[in-house]
Nucleic acid binder design. Structure first.
Lengths: 110, 110
DNA sequence: CGGCATCCGAATGGATACTG
DNA sequence: CAGTATCCATTCGGATGCCG
């Protein structure tokens, strides 16, 4: 992973991007549609949500279910690998949350 | 965390940036000096390593030990919160590694 | 050795408008 | 509803050079 040329670096950068962690964590709760995801992940734009989902789908972490044509109704849910990765991200987020008071305090004092 | 204005978002983005995960994971092994970190994290530039370390230090996750003046000898090591977060990142990296074959295979077939 | 300052191209990402 | 296309501002990040 510490080799710059290892493909794992690309996979990791997809997962640790700005939006992917939040999208993956949202999807651990339940399968969601586009608009629901946009609501769940505060501040994300259509463009970034679409792009993030495409990337996660390309890596096989998210599965895209097109249910009809007019009007479009598309569900997204985690694949098995996606579920495992998302769980770890959720744990990471939980730890960050626990340490948040200390982090905030440190920023003001330094 | 899903609120765009929550400060946890900023803390998370620091931890999930391109370089921070690799730096944090490197430091779980042992305290390291600047040059050693640059060697450990393949592909990182002086600028980004310096910037990443400053950010992690500002959040209180990494501690900077200046040991002498001429020549400068600076050790970096994880604080207790940093250690906890770094552990979770390491677990995440491990899972990504395990799923890597599937991810690579999925990319070529889709 | 361990950085910081500057420059500059590349990538990120938001707003808006548009489509089936 | 679920995106795509275009434009544009901001940021990222590498190369280089310099300093104590």
């Amino acid at each position: 992973m510490f080799d710059a040329l290892c493909p794992s670096r690309q996979a990791l950068s997809h997962v640790t991007g700005r939006w992917a962690p939040l999208v993956l964590t949202s999807l651990t709760e339940a399968p969601m549609r586009f608009a629901a995801l946009r609501r769940a992940v505060g501040g994300i734009s259509d463009r970034m949500l679409s792009q993030t989902l495409q990337q996660l789908e390309a890596d096989g972490l998210v599965i895209r279910d097109v249910q009809s044509a007019i009007p479009p109704a598309v569900q997204y849910h985690l694949s098995d690998p996606g579920q495992r990765i998302a769980m770890k991200i959720r744990e990471l987020i939980d730890v960050v949350y626990e340490e948040l008071p200390g982090i905030m305090a440190h920023r003001t004092t330094s």
